[in-house]
Amino acid sequence: MFDLSRLGAWAHLPFITETLPVIQAQLEVDERTVLPPAHLIFNALERVQPDDVRVVILGQDPYHTVGKAHGLAFSITDNFGGRLDSLGNIFKELQSDMDVIRTSTQLDDWADQGVLLLNTILTVPEGLPKGHAKLGWQKLTDQVLERLADKPRAYLLWGGPAHKAAQSVDAEANFKLQSSHPSPLGVTKSGTNFEAFRGSKPFSRTNAWLRSTGQRSINWDDPEAL
């Protein structure tokens, strides 16, 4: 079911041999449509190798509508043509934060600049959000974050599952911004340990931190603006 040949250094994570076979066995007997398609499930890791990761954006699970998810958290296939929901709010915040009007919904170019767009759960049954929350994908997230603890990075943690997954990320050594999920239901919520997504200025703050550490900024605009 899975083609692991493009995982590169990520293939050395214990998850691949210890947990993934168990998940695969469960998926193979699940008669529902599983999203994203099998060849895109590990897209986030395939596009950015560990040493190239500069920014981590953690989400929850993939979009549960056919044709929408393609393996990068919050990203939507360019030819989808439907509602943007969370991504629409991300784009509104990008415009408010940096005066950038992005039109491309497919965020491959972010990944190519070192942004790891990772969900804490990598699959979902069609029409059932968090339907695969108990398969064990979170073990992969834990190991990815542990692997990335070797040097400072920026972490944008959007929503409760992301906050929980990244509890061990050192806020002093890294740039760590916890906010609510950008979904229509969560975009304005805040709490004692997290900001409301709306108004959190994640893009400019991330770029400011990157520059402060001698790194180039991320171009959050459409790819042609690179």
Rank of each mutant, 00 (worst) to 15 (best):
P125N: 09
F194E: 03
V22N: 09
T17K: 11
H12Y: 05
E31L: 06
S180M: 08
L84N: 02
A44L: 04
L58C: 00
A9E: 15
G59R: 04
R47F: 09
P129F: 05
L185M: 14
A9V: 03
L145M: 11
T141S: 02
E195H: 13
L226G: 11
G114C: 07
I218Y: 12
E18Q: 14
W158S: 09
I90Q: 02
K92V: 10
G82I: 05
P152G: 10
I90V: 15
P152N: 06
G159D: 10
F194P: 08
A162G: 06
P37Y: 00
E31Q: 12
E28A: 13
K130M: 10
P37E: 11
Q24P: 05
L45G: 04
D97P: 11
R198W: 10
F197H: 05
L135F: 15
G8P: 05
Q106K: 13
E224Y: 09
L45S: 05
T120E: 00
V187A: 06
Q113P: 08
P14Y: 01
G160Q: 13
E126N: 06
S180G: 15
W10S: 01
F194R: 01
I121T: 15
A133Q: 12
A25I: 05
V48G: 01
R32P: 08
Q178V: 08
N193T: 15
A173F: 02
A9K: 12
D99S: 14
H132N: 11
L135T: 08
S86D: 14
R54T: 06
V56R: 00
S168F: 02
T65P: 00
P152A: 07
A69F: 08
E93Y: 03
S183E: 06
D78E: 13
T141A: 00
F2A: 09
S5R: 11
A162Y: 03
L226R: 07
Q178T: 09
G131I: 04
R6Q: 12
G186S: 07
D3Q: 06
L94S: 07
A25Q: 15
D97G: 10
D51S: 13
S180L: 05
G59E: 01
L45D: 03
Q113F: 13
A111M: 07
R32H: 11
A154N: 02
I90A: 02
Y155P: 01
K130F: 12
T103S: 13
G199C: 07
R147H: 04
N193L: 12
A162S: 14
P129H: 07
Q143F: 00
V144R: 00
N193I: 11
R32K: 14
N79I: 08
L20K: 02
L140S: 00
N207H: 07
K92M: 09
S204Q: 10
L128G: 01
F80D: 12
Y63A: 15
L94Y: 07
A38Y: 04
L7I: 11
H132G: 03
G81P: 06
L122M: 15
L87V: 13
F15D: 01
A154V: 14
I23W: 01
V22A: 10
L185Y: 14
L45C: 06
F91T: 05
F91A: 04
A133C: 10
N89P: 13
Y63N: 11
V48C: 04
V100K: 03
L27N: 09
L122P: 14
D78P: 02
V66G: 02
T188S: 11
G88F: 09
P62Y: 04
E172A: 09
I57N: 00
I16W: 15
